[in-house]
């Protein structure tokens, strides 16, 4: 397995996706292949290319500051596992 510059257990913790030992092994292998692809890309000469976060040739997609109707509260809460008095209800939040 190539040297993976990331901690698979840390990633799974942050993503709230618990992994079995076997899964952790498998994903670590897959991630290391991803890093190899990126290493390939890094061989390209991009000195003449501007850094970008987007490949869509668009910018400034705005909307005007206009109010549109909101959902009825019953509808908004419909899919919630639990609600109370118009609020979404969740288990106690541990800090």
């Amino acid at each position: 397995m190539a040297d993976v510059p990331m901690d698979i257990n840390q990633v799974s913790l942050l993503a709230r996706l618990p992994l079995t030992e076997e899964e952790a092994q498998r994903f670590a292998g897959q991630f290391s292949r991803l890093f190899e692809f990126i290493a390939d890309l890094q061989r390209l000469d991009v000195s003449a290319v501007h850094a970008t976060a987007q490949v869509i040739p668009l910018h400034n997609a705005f909307r005007e500051d206009e109010i549109r109707p909101s959902l009825d509260r019953e509808v908004a809460l419909e899919n919630a596992p639990d609600s109370e008095g118009g609020y979404f209800k969740t288990p106690r939040i541990l800090d």
């Binding site: 206009e66 909101s70 809460l77």
Partner: peptide, 23 residues
């Protein structure tokens, strides 16, 4: 502003809970 940052829900303080929400 009149409306929220990324949708058209009204931006106002003190409305009944979850009445200014959308998808």
């Amino acid at each position: 502003t009149q409306s929220k940052m990324f949708c058209g829900c009204r931006n106002v303080f003190g409305a009944p809970p979850n009445t200014l929400v959308c998808p």
